[in-house]
């Protein structure tokens, strides 16, 4: 792991990997696709992209990534999950399929497809004052919602009606929506800051 310029991994088993890579390119941050435990060992922080959570879950188990991921998350590696990534990082699902597992890390309960089918998918502008002073362009695509949060979880953004769509607990960031589809850099920039802080505290 490099000292000054952190390397960010994008979990590349399934989903919108390329859109996250484009945002990291726009921020000028070094990144690498992560499919194997060896690749995971090289990164300072990890993005779990949008995709189909049931599929990403199965693939992490089939290809021996589940335990290495859980170990890195438990050891404090910064992780950022969007949509399916939020689902993977939540401790509890209110509507998991019969064999679905999550990696956990966020003390929250998440409902999948909380808005309904694709015709309910929408774009909006959010306010996340801890992340940026500007509005955040957000695409919600068959999106999940955070239904309950534990005492150590900070809410970073809600919809106008108060429903929770962005949370942070320590170095773990989880959001319901896709700034990478909207091309909004603010949340990724915030996450890069978490990774840089984690790297410098290790090397301090």
């Amino acid at each position: 792991m490099a000292g000054s310029s952190p390397l960010i991994g994008v979990l590349a088993l399934q989903g919108d990997v390329r859109e996250h890579e484009l945002v990291l390119d726009a921020l000028g941050v070094a990144h690498v696709a992560v499919r194997t435990p060896a690749e995971l060992a090289e990164v300072d922080g990890l993005i779990i992209p949008g995709g189909e959570s049931t599929v990403i879950d199965k693939l992490t188990r089939i290809f021996g990534m589940r335990e290495p991921l859980r170990a890195r998350i438990a050891a404090g590696m910064p992780v950022f999950g969007t949509c399916a990534g939020l689902i993977m990082l939540s401790n509890r699902l209110s509507d998991a399929t019969h064999d679905q597992q999550t990696l956990g890390g966020l003390d929250v309960t998440v409902r999948r497809n909380a808005f309904g089918s694709q015709v309910e998918s929408f774009e909006t502008t959010l306010h996340a004052p801890d992340v940026t002073d500007d509005g955040v362009a957000a695409s919600f695509i068959r999106a999940p919602l955070v239904e309950e949060v534990g005492p150590d979880v900070r809410v970073l953004a809600t919809l106008d009606d108060g429903r929770i769509v962005a949370v942070q607990q320590g170095n773990i960031l989880g959001i319901s929506f896709h700034p990478e589809i909207s091309g909004d850099l603010a949340f990724h920039n915030y996450f890069v800051g978490l990774v840089a802080d984690a790297v410098s505290s290790v090397h301090a």
Partner: peptide, 19 residues
Amino acid sequence: PQLGTDRVKRGLAEMLKGG
């Protein structure tokens, strides 16, 4: 909220990639 925009229509397909 804006429903049925190009971004959310094309965006769902982005989520299916690699699948």
